[in-house]
Write a protein that binds this DNA or RNA. Structure first.
Lengths: 228, 228
DNA sequence: TCAAAAGTGTTCTTCGTACACCCATGA
DNA sequence: TCATGGGTGTACGAAGAACACTTTTGA
């Protein structure tokens, strides 16, 4: 039973980004203070005394990486007594999605560097941050099955194959192109434009699509059944 | 940005019980200290300095209600700066399932009383505990769709209709008996016994069923698709 | 004999899934 | 003309959803 309680409260953010070149990526910072100095870690930090948790994540994210994000969702709270070698710190974690190109990454005093890392290419991180990312990735994989996904991660107009590749990157498995298109089209949150993709290499240029934002958010609220 | 951080960390538990008479119920305690003295609230309290979060919930639950529970799952962390009128307290909440008859409720120094309340008959609780219960109930309703449920809530042998009623109580809507039975039977986590229900009133006595514990936990791990 | 609860099958529709060939473009 | 990626339809099987009458028992 506690005498005087001495536990610190932190927030950490798992921010996912996607580009067709890089695949599914996570935003990390390099710590420039001990413990774990010079080790990569999730952006995050202590919560202010009168600061709502969401504000704290946004603030830390902005300070440490320059990224703002309009949608963050609480993931899990990690409270193992030994997860921080100094004192007891529990971390309330959040995850979110962002277009990596939308921000110029910056570093500040707390963070020596900020970079995107492909989800498959993340080394040993500080604290229990590998576990946190793994939990976030699992959540994302299951979330994708009952909520539409993509609007937060793709540019305004994109060829259909981009969405396919995004889903394959998130789920980390192949998808049948025809069935995927049938299913997505039926939901009606995509609109076909008249424009065509400007190809970089060979291949038939695809039509460009865009999200119907209204339907997208409607379906996000209502929930979908998306078995790919 | 924080100066010296002064935030307390608590855990609270939403424990669901079920009986055919009472329906789906939640375990509450009556507070006998300020704030919210004499108001009903979730069992819970501050986390010890070196105490794992799960241990803290179990301990508080045991102390305040006498109930032990073998499965608790983290629900959400509530961190609104004003949720406690005294200081800032963030609460990491858990939920779990238990057979209400399995324990004799007791009260102790922190809790003046402990009782089961039908989920539909919960008044105004202390703090933001109504929100917490509502989040737990929603989680339970969606969880039931991809995990089997019932083993933790029903006695060893029970008529099939008990399981039906349990699902209806949790989902708070009617279910088609024939389709439900078809579906449940197909999963194979139920075994029919030769015994018959001993009726209290009129009506044809039903066969008694029991859970096949092994298959039940296997399906719990693997996940099911249970659209009722 | 009546009221209460249990037991039981069929049909229709929807959805998931497997699968292969032609088209447009740049090199 | 070839390599690359885009575009498209069908057929089968599984599962969900709607739906009503008979049986057993206690009162």
């Amino acid at each position: 039973m506690p005498g005087l309680q001495d536990i610190k409260v932190a927030v950490d953010a798992v921010v996912f980004g996607y580009t067709s070149k890089e695949g599914l990526s996570v935003l990390l910072i390099k710590r420039n203070i001990e413990p774990f100095k010079d080790v990569w870690a999730l952006p995050g930090g202590l919560v202010g005394n009168d600061e709502p948790l969401e504000d704290a994540v946004q603030r830390e994210l902005k300070e440490e990486t320059g990224v703002s994000i309009n949608y963050l969702e609480q993931l899990y709270s990690f409270g193992n007594p030994n997860r921080d070698p100094r004192n007891r710190v529990i971390s309330i974690t959040y995850y979110g999605l962002v277009k990596p190109d939308a921000f110029e990454l910056k570093a500040d005093t707390d963070a020596g560097d900020a970079r995107w890392f492909n989800i498959k290419n993340i080394g040993q991180l500080a604290f229990d941050h590998n576990d946190i990312i793994s939990a976030a990735h699992n959540r994302l994989k299951s979330k994708i099955l009952y909520e539409p996904l993509g609007f937060e991660l793709l540019e305004g107009k994109f060829p259909f194959s981009e969405l396919e590749k995004l889903y394959m990157a998130v789920l980390d498995r192949p998808i049948d192109r025809r069935n995927f298109k049938k299913k997505v089209t039926k939901f009606g949150f995509l609109e076909e434009t008249n424009e065509k993709q400007s190809l970089d290499g060979a291949g038939r240029p695809g039509n460009l699509f865009k999200f119907n934002e209204e339907k997208y958010y409607q379906l996000k609220k209502d929930g979908i059944s998306f078995e790919i």
